[in-house]
């Protein structure tokens, strides 16, 4: 293997690998490690300055959070909202993405910029005015309020991702299918779907994760009676700042998302492979 590269390239590769490792350490290993350690700090033995590691490790924080706070309900809330939001967002994004990815029309570039523009708005600002709109419309369900808010704010991501997918659909396959007498459904199944599948999955999972992690809308629309995991997390970072509890909640929030990302990655790979090699 080593003979594949000349010495100069070998050194450059080593430097790049080292850089990646350092980045990985500071961006992931360190924060995660700290979060795990902090969440295991025993309430009666605080972790303070001279100690490099917590003096006593225990799961008491975890048990406390699980039994005494509204975390269980918050988890249910977060996941049902996210599921609703991701499905609704994908369905709503599809027509626009199709137009952007497969059609030519005047003002297309401007329209594409316009759909991305909402991303520039701070969500807090948006949320404050959004609440008044909700009450004007007579929508009092917190669940529905948060779900609609998330759907609207996450649409740009889904549109962007699906536009790329739609533009990856090969016109010659569409033509070939039609030329051989295929119905619209058959054209969709054989020319569109194999290419769209990875993008659909990616958009679904990314919107799902973004919805779970969203705080501003969930807090402003939902508080105080509809809690999600981020609202609970932020309650530990406010007046009553309890770092170990915050660490535990943030792990509960983040770990499933990281796992989801990994699953998404696998799905994307297998979907991509089935596009080229698998029977579908």
């Amino acid at each position: 293997m080593a003979t594949l590269f000349r010495p100069a390239e070998r050194w450059r590769n080593r430097a790049l690998i080292l850089f990646a490792l350092v980045l990985f350490f500071f961006a992931l290993v360190l924060p995660f490690g700290m979060a795990v350690l902090w969440s295991l700090v025993d309430p009666s033995h605080p972790w303070a300055y001279p100690n490099v590691l917590p003096p006593v490790l225990s799961f008491r924080r975890w048990v406390e959070i699980w039994t005494t706070t509204g975390l269980q309900q918050a988890l249910v809330n977060s996941y049902t909202v996210a599921l609703t939001v991701s499905i609704a967002t994908i369905l709503l994004a599809l027509p626009t993405a199709f137009a952007f990815g497969r059609m030519e029309f005047r003002g297309k570039a401007a329209a594409q910029v316009l759909t991305l523009l909402p991303l520039a708005m701070p969500l807090f600002v948006l949320a404050i005015f959004y609440v008044t709109i909700l009450s004007k419309l007579g929508i009092y369900s917190r669940f529905l309020g948060i779900a609609i808010g998330h759907t609207v704010c996450l649409l740009p991501y889904a549109i962007r991702l699906l536009t790329v997918s739609f533009s990856g659909v090969r016109q010659d396959l569409i033509d070939a299918a039609r030329d051989l007498g295929a119905s619209r459904l058959t054209v969709f199944r054989h020319a569109y779907l194999p290419v769209l599948k990875p993008g659909l999955l990616a958009a679904l999972i990314i919107v799902f994760i973004l919805s779970i992690e969203e705080f501003a809308i969930s807090y402003i629309v939902g508080a105080p009676d509809f809690t999600t995991v981020p609202t609970i997390l932020f309650s530990y970072l406010g007046y009553n700042f309890i770092r170990p509890s915050a660490a535990a909640v943030s792990l509960i929030l983040v770990v499933p998302n990281v796992l989801l990302m990994l699953i998404a990655e696998r799905l994307l790979k297998s979907a991509g492979a089935s596009g080229a090699a698998g029977k579908g």
């Binding site: 010659d172 033509d175 070939a176 054989h190 596009g275």
Partner: peptide, 11 residues
């Protein structure tokens, strides 16, 4: 039609 790109269904 026989397409320049062949246009075979990859899956």
């Amino acid at each position: 039609m026989c397409f320049q790109s062949y246009a075979l269904f990859p899956h």
